[in-house]
Design a binder for these strands. Structure first.
Length: 420
DNA sequence: TCTGGGGTCCTAGGACCC
DNA sequence: TCTGGGGTCCTAGGACCC
């Protein structure tokens, strides 16, 4: 059966979240600013229309902000995360499989569903009704085309925010209109190189020889070419992959010149990173620390350095990380600089207590389900963790990840999700 | 003067081993 | 001393994403 993906993307997400709680600003221009109110990280529709660029430093656009009376909000990530959860919850009710791709985007598997366009419209309406967030929906046989469809849904208001791109002719017509740089996976650098070779539109790229693309560029871009031609190379990943690194870093509002202050900042990041790590129920084996001065001012003396250490044992303990951070910091710190940013990174994760077994329903196969019982027993003794279910070799392929607090799954077999 | 904070994947090159 | 062909693992850097 041909696959059908939908990409649901919240419109101007951060700005829309802020507007939800400020009805008076419903049609007013709104921006959300980065950590120290340093630059613009989100813009409402009205602001985009003014030509204010994403990532613009605030001091450069201050005039524009005042001139148009643009409302400025400092970012409130707790709010955005909460709103995101609400949106995703609606999507999970509407589609059999959902991959949460980012805080404001999700891929849906709509394979085998009749009248996908109508379903897409319903989904959009539901999200709007339940959360107040407006979304665009793009439907297509591959993720890359679904992204493109979503792009069209936003670029052309006449679409009403929903574009069905299952038809090959429609795909080609749209691709002819879209610049190659708009394609998912084609960034600034690739855009330049592709343009130099005369590939200017998405259609040009789609019609390029995949072998040549692989040779001259990369396997990643080759995949993109195939995806543009309706050949699905990227699967839906409804099970959130385990993190491979955790980073905590900040730019400082004001330059830091005192050693103690810098160390204090790093200690805070270490603590936060350790917290995130424990949330993942993971242990890290490598800690990295970096500090640097400003990079934009050519008159400033530049310095940047980092150091890392392999811990003697996998660890998720804040104090142990702090102890390991000290000597790293001492080794890279140089006095006399005005530090602008610092951060820590945890990597080389080690996953403790991971058990694997085949999954059978006890009522169907008592003998073989004993393995599962054993595993659940072990997990239960830990008290908390993540349970992964995956079914392979059946159609459709299926997997999911659920956090649980024991003994949630052992006492109630009915709470185990049905696979077929 | 003032410029975000996360992440992922791939590749090339070096070290090292048999 | 010279000569060969694999292979793995690690790291740094570059590209991309939101």
């Amino acid at each position: 059966m041909d696959k059908v993906f939908a990409l649901v993307d919240c419109n101007n997400f951060y700005a829309s979240c802020e507007k939800l709680f400020r009805p008076d600003l419903k049609h007013a221009p709104v921006v959300v600013l980065s950590n120290n109110d340093g630059c613009v990280v989100a813009r409402s529709r009205e602001v985009k229309a003014l030509g204010l660029k994403m990532g613009a430093p605030v001091f450069q656009v201050r005039n524009l902000i005042e001139q148009h009376n643009i409302a400025c909000f400092s970012s409130n990530y707790a709010l955005y995360a909460d709103m995101s959860n609400r949106v995703m919850t609606v999507l999970e009710q509407e589609a059999p499989q959902v991959e949460i791709y980012s805080i404001d985007e999700a891929f849906l598997d709509l394979t085998g569903i009749d009248a996908v366009y109508d379903v897409a419209c319903q989904i959009k309406a539901k999200v709007d009704q339940y959360t107040g967030i407006t979304v665009g929906v793009g439907v297509a046989p591959t993720k890359t085309l679904a992204k493109l469809a979503n792009h069209a849904a936003k670029a052309y208001p006449a679409t009403g925010g929903v574009v069905d791109l299952t038809d090959r002719e429609r795909q080609r017509r749209l691709m002819a209109l879209v610049e190659v740089g708009e394609v998912w996976g084609v960034g600034r650098r690739l855009t330049k190189h592709l343009q130099a070779r005369g590939l200017r539109t998405a259609l040009d790229l789609a019609d390029a020889d995949p072998k040549m693309i692989r040779r001259e560029f990369s396997v990643v871009l080759e995949r993109t070419v195939r995806e543009l031609n309706g050949i699905s190379c990227l699967e839906l990943e409804s099970m959130a992959p385990t993190k491979q690194q955790i980073v905590c870093s900040r730019s400082f509002g004001e330059r830091i010149t005192q050693k103690g202050e810098l160390k204090e900042a790093l200690a805070k990041y270490v603590a936060r990173a350790a917290e995130k790590l424990r949330q993942e129920t993971c242990l890290a084996q490598v800690l990295q620390v970096f500090i640097r001065t400003g990079v934009f001012n050519p008159n400033e003396r530049h310095y940047s350095n980092s150091a890392s250490v392999k811990l003697s044992a996998p660890c998720d303990d804040t104090r142990a990380f702090l102890a390991a951070m000290e000597p790293l910091f001492e080794s890279i710190y140089r006095p006399g600089f005005r530090y602008a940013k610092a951060g820590v990174m945890l990597t080389d994760f080690y996953q403790p207590n991971t058990y694997q077994t085949d999954l059978f329903y006890p009522e169907e196969d008592r003998e073989r389900s004993k393995n599962l019982m054993d595993v659940l027993d072990k997990i239960n003794r830990q008290g908390r963790g993540h349970l992964f279910f995956a079914a392979q070799g059946v159609t459709p392929q299926w997997s999911m990840k659920r956090e649980f607090l024991s003994p949630a799954y052992t006492t109630n077999w009915n709470s185990l999700p049905k696979v077929y």
